[in-house]
Amino acid sequence: MPKTGEHWKTFLKGLWEDNPIFRMILGICSTLAVTNQVVNTLAMCGAVVFVITASSLIVSLVRKITGKRVRMAVYTLFIAAFVIMVDIALKAWVPTIAKAMGPYVGLIITNCIIMGRAEAYASNNKPLPSVLDAAGVGLGYAMSLLIIAVFRELLGFGTIAGLRVFGPGFEPWVIMVMAPGAFFMLGSYIWVIRTIQDRQAKRKVEKKRRAATAA
């Protein structure tokens, strides 16, 4: 039985070290598609965090009775069920957001991050660590999307979550809210984060080397 610290590490891994967007480069289509407005992005992130956590929990619970050959079918079944639940809930309570997100809610089913966590982690681990792992990766995805969305909406509309930030003299960069803007923004984001991570890694190596020579 791993200690609490281990669980915490599992959770944090998805946020930084194994972040799905800038480390694993998974789930990119939804990142490009729904990040032009913060409100829609929030709905998408909430939906993904819910679906990934719930499906990882179920997959982990039934891992001992899931046959090898039907495991993919089982994951898809549960993931699809949770996505449909989210879709119904959005349509019933926030129809304008449901309309704005259009086909992308249904496409969460094909989000490779979710299937990836089910196959790589939840299918071989106990429910608690599986949920933490899924929540970490889900929130890591959400964090990346929100950062991208804030910049795109700010530059493209001059607003954040619909609130005006720049004065009326601001000329919106229309390209930022269109598809090419998503590519520019995602590319720059991955570049900046990877540079920071590389520096971190170098510093670690340096420290180890110094410790070794001192000894």
Binding site: V62, K64, T66, G67, R69, V74, L77, F78
Partner: peptide, 19 residues
């Protein structure tokens, strides 16, 4: 045996019905 063919089919059918 979770990989028993009959069991797998049964499991999938029941899971689908529940969902």
């Amino acid at each position: 045996d979770k990989d028993n063919r009959l069991f797998m089919v049964g499991f999938l059918v029941i899971a689908s019905l529940v969902v």
